[in-house]
Design a protein around this nucleic acid. Sequence first.
DNA 1: GTAGGGTTAG
Length: 596
Amino acid sequence: MPSPPPSTAAAAALQLEPLLPHLSTLSHYKQFHARLHALGTLHSYPSLRARFLDRLALLPHADALPHALLLLRSLPSPATNDFNAALRGLAASPHPARSLLLLAGRLLPAPAPPRPRLDALSLSFALKATARCSDAFATLQLHATLFRLGVAADVRLMTTLLDSYAKCGDVASARKVFDEMPVRDVATWNALLAGLAQGTEPNLALLLFRRLAGSFRELPPREEPNAVTVVAALSACAQLGTLKDGLAVHEFARTIGAVDNVCVGNALIDMYSKCGSLSRALEVFHSIKLEDRTLVSYNATIQALSIHGHGEDALKLFDEMPARIEPDEITYLAVMGGCNHAGLVDDGRRVFDSMRVPPNMKHYGTIVDLLGRAGRLAEAYDMIMSMPFPADIVLWQTLLGAAKMHGNVDLAELAATKLADLGSNVDGDYVLLSNVYASKSRWVDVGRVRDTMRSNDVKKVPGFSYTEIDGVMHKFINGDKEHMRWREIYRALDEIGSRICALGYEPETSNVLHDIGEEEKQYALSYHSEKLAIAFGLISTPPGETIRVIKNLRTCGDCHVVAKLISKAYNRVIIIRDRARFHRFEDGHCSCRDYW
DNA sequence: GTAGGGTTAG
């Protein structure tokens, strides 16, 4: 098609440019594209074209990105900016790895047009993609590319690189990039802090935060901690469950005036909830102005109510969500989890049936648990069968747990078979199956399970608990004698045993594999990590003080009974945060009402 | 003009 003379094209570009920020629907974009094309501006005004392409590629519509790619492919010689627009769109799409294909020239038509020169932006977008797909090797390759092309390694690009390494789980490389950077700013610090906090190093993250917060007045302005720093630090506190640290970070947030930031508010809700203070979490939620609350504010608060056993309140808050905020998959998971922990079976089922987003594996997991615990095993099984995708290991473990709870041998065997098919080989599965047989006195089958365990080299998931005394974390593993004061702790457990026996305690040994004698079973139970932690708390804190314990797995039935009795016999409030929720023991009762 | 760091999940 012949292009209009340049003067006309320039006039057209001038006329089109102001429209660009107002395009909203895909149809607008298509019309704009047609006019760019008809007026000859597509080729004579590459900057307008690139800005158009950039916006189109990021438009949240399933056909927008393909259309942008089509346009890119139609260009005889795309410019760096055109290329970057597509890279950015692909990196932010549900298939970020495709931006790496484009980078390699694989998405361009054959014979490929000359690929434009790459710049810092190209690499920045590609690094975003490798971070999103956790591809550590691709990150490393881009790092090499960056040197090979001699792209200026400025603070922004290097921060992106650092962040990408951290998000791919390669914290060592992230630190190395950090150490070698000649100039850093607050985003650099934050990327490292968040990398440590979200990886497996929340303790290191807190150390780093304390260093930053302790010296923040001496830092150059561009390195001063800000709201993002606070959010990352709060996430470390939430993981660790250390209320003391969380309170200190909150105080720091006030110092730097970051508390009005809604993300800080949301992170505070989560931190307080996971550190055991539901009241403080709710206080923060209510302090956020109604119009400032986001979906995350509601999700975090509903989740807080759920893990503290307040299912009714979680449902109420869910119903009260303002119309401007659409619940997402996390909202549904949180509110159904709340129903599950509070035994609100019909409410949970109703929420599930009313979901306005497609349920994922976790939603099915929660609803199967909910139905299974309530003894509605057929319904739970039908739920699994009705799923549009195959059930995973956790889901079959959930069903197995329910089958054990209600003594259903057939369902337990079925779940165990599925688990074996899926390659699960953890001790808990076998213990549950064996206990179903034991509950029906099927000792031959019990023996068979034990033999399978021996021949399969079963993995034991180690249970551990920790408790904080005077600012120091003490960690306990089942039956361990590593602690400096282990003799005192074991002596205390003996004393606890006799005091709670007087209150009618009988060891609940059905949670132990039936391949050992009754006495050994009791022994295996009495030194569960949470019991060691509680005993240590009892002997190292003054009478009446609350004992707080965090456990990596779910609390076992026997420990639950024991914690209730200790709370009565010693007049102590005991709070255990397990994998799924909080248990608050007081005067012989638990906040979960024995349903969890 | 175009880039970096953040909170919710069985």
